[in-house]
Design a protein around this nucleic acid. Sequence first.
DNA 1: CTGGATCCGATTTGATACTG
DNA 2: CAGTATCAAATCGGATCCAG
Lengths: 118, 118
Amino acid sequence: MPDFIYNNKVYYNPVEFAMDRIGGTWKMPILWRLRDRVMRYNELKKDIPHITHKMLTTQLRELEEEGFIHRQVYAVVPPKVEYSITQRGKRSIEIIEIIRNYGLELMKEFNIEEKKRN
Amino acid sequence: MPDFIYNNKVYYNPVEFAMDRIGGTWKMPILWRLRDRVMRYNELKKDIPHITHKMLTTQLRELEEEGFIHRQVYAVVPPKVEYSITQRGKRSIEIIEIIRNYGLELMKEFNIEEKKRN
DNA sequence: CTGGATCCGATTTGATACTG
DNA sequence: CAGTATCAAATCGGATCCAG
């Protein structure tokens, strides 16, 4: 007896629905970077460590389709595409900040040592 | 945000770390149900729709190992095992409530009807 | 520069059988 | 009652190639 369906997927509770919208490995890092500025595809690509081409494009597509970010295409050669955050996306930032701070809190409890990048 | 490692897995940010601790499809529903009462394995199994035996056991194991819940075994026949929330788990409930409310908010925006369960 | 499409291995999950 | 073990199915993600 499902709770509700969205996009051909069955959800059992609101938490699951929220996390499918802004969860996963990459959506929050993307939204976080767009929180106060407009960025082009390659800027995001360079700024988010380890994300692959495929994951960045698919995640951007989903975030756009669900109204968290806006995609502005400029008819120039070579192509120029700018991504910016929407009102809905800004609201999600509040939640992301809370989760992020909680993550930092947990990291302390777990005595996580940071590993330096090369 | 530098990378770090926990349990042989590389993390790129605190959000990802937090969601690996209490995220996924089932951990929040489990924690949520234990927020104000002690429950036995079969109680949880019956109360969480669609969760499989395997997923419930593995998720309970992980939550226990990471200190979010406590597992109390009684040496009786047939076996009796009670799960309860810990201090760390209680803290997570605050975060879960925020995400849950945000989920409800999003559901309204997406015109999804909430059913009476959960 | 941006991004779609495809192949394919890795990871996750479900179904089922078995146990003290 | 509360698990473990095992195998197969489904899903996910990375690498690669093609295109306007």
